[in-house]
Write a protein that binds this DNA or RNA. Structure first.
Lengths: 349, 349
DNA sequence: ATTAGCACTCAATTCTACCGAGTGCCAACG
DNA sequence: CGTTGGCACTCGGTAGAATTGAGTGCTAAT
């Protein structure tokens, strides 16, 4: 036995049809009952036309190969992360209910306002569609070029530097001067800043005048404040919708706390989403993303692409036993609508 | 008995010294044990120099008057909202531990960046200090005057209207035109907008030119987009820190869900805080704020006043059995530092 | 008015028994 | 030989019953 096994299935990457069917039945049922599932319920479920005994022997094989686990002897089986992975990899893509399709259509037809508002509201939409917590990440504008720079004087010592980027984002920075900046200085400085910076990106270093008059100093300070915005912290924006779903969907206060505490750290969320995208995944299950506190979570991501360029992503965070088909469908549809919304704006009203 | 009572304490607004002491002991102990407290532990606690039996008879009185309640016969007493109210009203003000004082001082000494960033980080600070969820509300800029208006052309049809207010806030609005707006139109329109709007507030209606050329149309559209920002939604900003504390501090998943779900609706949070401030309260306990899902919560608010004008507020949200003294102290200290930070900026750096 | 004493209440805990879903193994069967 | 029915076994969960003990309310004595 042992010898034969070692030869025919050293690390079987794929499963024969029956094992696959059984695994699918276990996953499906566990997803909507949240209970370990036993051989008889699998055997009686459609698709499987064998006796419980046979199912059992297949199950021990699936367990040996790491797709299933037993919470304790004499309990049913529960899928492992690997089991979910197989399930997700062989998932036929789902569609939204027509009510949901309507909801999405209506939403994007009526949504108004600035990019940020749209993204924020989209996160709520996605969360409502799935009853999981939704994440919407806006693209970094670190590659956008500067369209306009303006210094506005708040008072003698405080200037406000307002920068407009080609992607429509606006940044503001306070500039403190050590001298009294009369209003003439400021508009002159604005002019010079525009001349220096328009068309550049934030990564672009520019040559600043080294003169020592007030205007030149103000210009220098402004440029350095603007370029100082380097810490990884900025550029991306995150919007989280439906964080209260965390409390509905996970059991165990401790888990809820951990997950919420992750969600609070927006930087972390951005890199989580980014990591998963970089790995080319659309789903990360349990241990697959390396975030220990999220071991019992699955994360779905769908990139948003506008004109061929990455423009952000939408994500969903739920328990590993989440409704993958529906959630993937929702994330996909929403990301597409979002892409169309931003890409197709020219053709619209 | 009944007759005498009706005469001497129709609705006793105040309590005699011993009742007060007992009430305080009950509240204090219940706050840090989360358990109903019995007569003997009260009697043995310092301050109270009577036997358990006496305490018991006082307790029935306190219960009759609505300060205490019994979860069930033969359990200890638990404070009611009214009991907490009395406790809070007679609270001697607390101080922060010196470690905490340091933390606050260090924070405000080193905090950098734009107002929004400071407020955001302050919410985290306050949450860390208290281990409750913190709320920081930034002042509405609806009364600020406009310092500068600028139209920036994104492409032929999309203009971006960037408005700078006297409080240092910046607003952006997209303006869509039905015609091709050459760059000359745009800078001329900017000039006209500046002439029209500088020095006005958003409440101020202005006379717009009724000509029919492209520039006039663009100006009209811009003004209307700007003034359309009326829905209550805007102006205030809310920052919520430590929402994961909700899961630590409340018991019962359902409560956690309710509270989180309230926190998601930022508008609701703003009006909650505003309501409490309007009532002139600094603490709202249980039923005192009218928000049914927050029945088991207490909310602490402290206004932030800069140069005599309201500039926002900081708040804390915890269970009714929260550590009022410490939380009030923290909220107070932070709100003062915040006020000083924004008020005293001229003298700094 | 205060208090010690006492009977009483009732949630929480512990213990026991037991039920039953589910397993692993084996012998029989087509 | 893979499949299946049969069967003994395991063990978490539940339901009762018994017990505990913290806490009360009342009463009579100080």
């Amino acid at each position: 036995m042992t010898r034969r096994d070692a030869k025919t299935k050293p690390t079987a990457r794929t499963l024969d049809a029956r094992k696959a069917t059984i695994l699918e039945a276990v996953v499906t049922e566990h997803i909507d009952t949240a209970q370990p599932v036993g051989s008889s319920s699998v055997a009686h479920s459609a698709e499987v036309a064998v006796s419980p005994a046979t199912v059992r022997s297949e199950m021990v094989a699936l367990e040996r190969e790491g797709y299933l686990a037993q919470p304790h002897t004499s309990a049913g089986r529960v899928p492992t992360d690997k089991g979910y992975r197989y399930f997700v990899d062989h998932l036929t893509s789902g569609v939204l209910s027509s009510a949901q399709q309507h909801q999405v259509k209506d939403f994007f037809a009526s949504v108004r306002g600035e990019v940020e508002d749209v993204l924020e509201q989209t996160s709520t939409l996605l969360s409502q569609l799935t009853s999981y917590t939704a994440v919407v990440v806006g693209a970094s504008h670190s590659h956008a070029t500067i369209l306009s720079v303006q210094l506005v004087s708040l008072d003698a010592r405080h200037q406000l530097l307002v920068t407009v980027f080609s992607d429509g984002s606006v940044a503001k920075h306070s500039v403190l001067t050590s001298f009294d900046a009369g209003s003439i200085d400021v508009s002159e400085a604005s002019r010079q800043l525009n001349a220096l910076l328009i068309g550049t990106t934030l990564e672009h270093r520019v040559q600043v005048p080294s003169r020592h008059d007030n205007v030149a100093t103000l210009v220098r300070e402004s440029v350095s404040v603007l370029h100082a915005e380097r810490p990884v912290t900025d550029g991306e924006q995150v919007f989280i919708g439906g964080s209260s779903k965390v409390a509905e969907v996970f059991d165990g206060v401790e888990t809820v706390r951990k997950v919420l505490s992750i969600l609070e750290q927006e930087l972390l969320v951005v890199s989580l989403v980014q990591d998963i995208l970089d790995q080319g995944l659309s789903v990360a299950i349990g241990s697959e993303h390396g975030y220990e506190p999220l071991l019992s979570c699955a994360v779905i991501v769908a990139p948003v692409t506008v004109d061929g360029a990455p423009a952000g992503a939408v994500g969903l965070l739920g328990p590993t036993r989440m409704k993958y088909r529906e959630a993937l469908a929702a994330a996909g549809v929403v990301s597409q609508h979002l892409a169309r919304h931003f890409g197709g704006e020219e053709e619209r009203g």
